[in-house]
Design a protein around this nucleic acid. Structure first.
Lengths: 141, 141
DNA sequence: TATTGTTATACTCTATAACTATA
DNA sequence: TATAGTTATAGAGTATAACAATA
């Protein structure tokens, strides 16, 4: 007969889980790379799949279009993105990564992958697979 | 003989892990509660352990003290925190939660715990313990 | 003179509302 | 008239540098 109920255990484990996530967030995920803000990175990630209109950018990021204007302004100023007005519909704006923007994004992606490797590094190969199996069950993917 | 090396497997698992973390961040951790910003929550969490000076707040959060002034200003304006000048050293400022601030923080804490429970909910009890054991090994706690 | 905190200033990020250009 | 995007404006969050009060 257990000392406490499954509900009580769940609460304790949930609390501990949140602490672990906080630690990992501090240790790995807030690690800034490439002098790019969270927002700038989100826009670059969207553009990495190919050029997009401002509407597509804002839909993808869930932000107001007036906010996106400023972010893209700064990316353009830094030579990371380019705007063009397509002749098909001159109301829209096409935004695309420049070569430099692509390079910076790839650099960030590699850095991020290293953080992921760093997280798994303390585990044995079998444990890593175990962890991923549990994550799949949680996210249902 | 494996089809690919352990290094290649690590990279693949790391990439998948980061995707799972992104999903969980979107699904659970960015869930806003109680109309408190990230920064405001961080300050409340510091104050929840007891009153603190501005220096203690800024050290705890790793922010510039000029930034903390504004955040605490807004918390005070909203009736969530109070400033006092202690007679022992009148250069310092003591910041403490008000009853309302405490209440709001407790409310947030309970919401957050529910998110943690929600994350573990799809797992069997034994799997939950397994997951936590792996997290302990990763964070070394 | 050293320490604690605020003020001044500036930049990013965000949103709502008004506006321009195009369809 | 409807749509795509920018501009105007405002507030939060951040930092550096200058400043005031206290030790």
């Amino acid at each position: 007969m257990p000392k406490y109920s499954e509900t009580e255990e769940l609460t304790g484990l949930a609390s501990e889980l949140l602490t672990h996530i906080d630690v990992l967030t501090q240790r790995f995920l807030l690690h800034k790379t490439a002098d790019l803000s969270r927002t700038e990175l989100a826009v670059l990630r969207t553009l990495a799949d190919g050029p997009a209109t401002m509407s597509e950018v804002t839909n993808s990021l869930g932000m107001a279009c007036s906010s996106a204007t400023g972010v893209v302004d700064r990316l353009v100023d830094r030579g990371l993105a380019e705007r063009t007005r397509p002749d098909e519909d001159r109301r829209t704006v096409n935004v695309a990564l420049t070569k430099r923007g692509r390079h910076l994004y790839d650099h960030h992606t590699e850095d991020r992958l290293n953080l992921g490797r760093g997280m798994l590094e303390p585990l044995e190969p079998a444990e890593r697979r175990q962890l991923l199996a549990l994550f799949r069950k949680i996210t249902n993917r």
